[in-house]
Design a binder for these strands. Sequence first.
DNA 1: ATGCCGGGTACGACCCGA
Length: 259
Amino acid sequence: MRIVTWNINGIKARLPVITEWLSQQKPDILCLQEIKSVDENFPREAIESLGYNIETHGQKGFNGVAILSLQPFDEVHRGLPGNEEDMQARLIEGVFSTERGAVRVCNIYLPNGNPVESEKFPYKLNWMDRLQDFVQSRLEYEERFILLGDFNLIPEKIDCHDPEAWWGDALYRPESLAKFRKLHNLGLTDALRAVTEAPSYTFWDFQSGAWRRNNGVRIDHLMLSPQAADQLEGVIVHKELRGWDKPSDHVAVEGRFSF
DNA sequence: ATGCCGGGTACGACCCGA
């Protein structure tokens, strides 16, 4: 099974790129972040005509996540528990059947958190606390569980073209990384790091010629339960997508599994 | 280093991203 995460920075603007890429690659599951669309306006027909089932969790203007799957969904869950006041659409989870039981795919758009002095940074940290509780409860199922998406977290120095410049940013500072380590230490495997020690950026800013200068960061991740990690066959960062016409600033990251 | 880019809303700037 091929399972992909991709922050597409607006479904409306990115529809031509997405349909072209789906036609070429035909992944089993494509998880999108930043659809920037309400559910009613998601361009379902263009994607359904390629054979995909679609579940969305959108909101007006910002955020929003979706899962596209060749296989039908057994279950769908929307939203991160733990704060009834939080209206931001940043999590959708799908459960799928295989011959050997369930695969649970949880797609997240973790808050950016900048500027650090604003209310956005404590919101990020609080969101990560809630995610910690959610993932801990999910791992109790002892299933093939994949937590993937735009984490807005730079795990290590190697994941950043210019660590000194980024240090202190909400994506790369002690409070953020402490919570990321805590999540990791629940027993999750960082899929990309399980297969390579090489720098493997997933985001290049639109500004300042970041792509041309390879000034990138790795912030899009697949984190695997032990049951999923045992069946990991490889990870592909689809870097070429950043060079397409009208690209997202993020590229797709694919995990290949033997289930 | 912020808002140089790019998308969204809504139609003229302003919000947001990382």
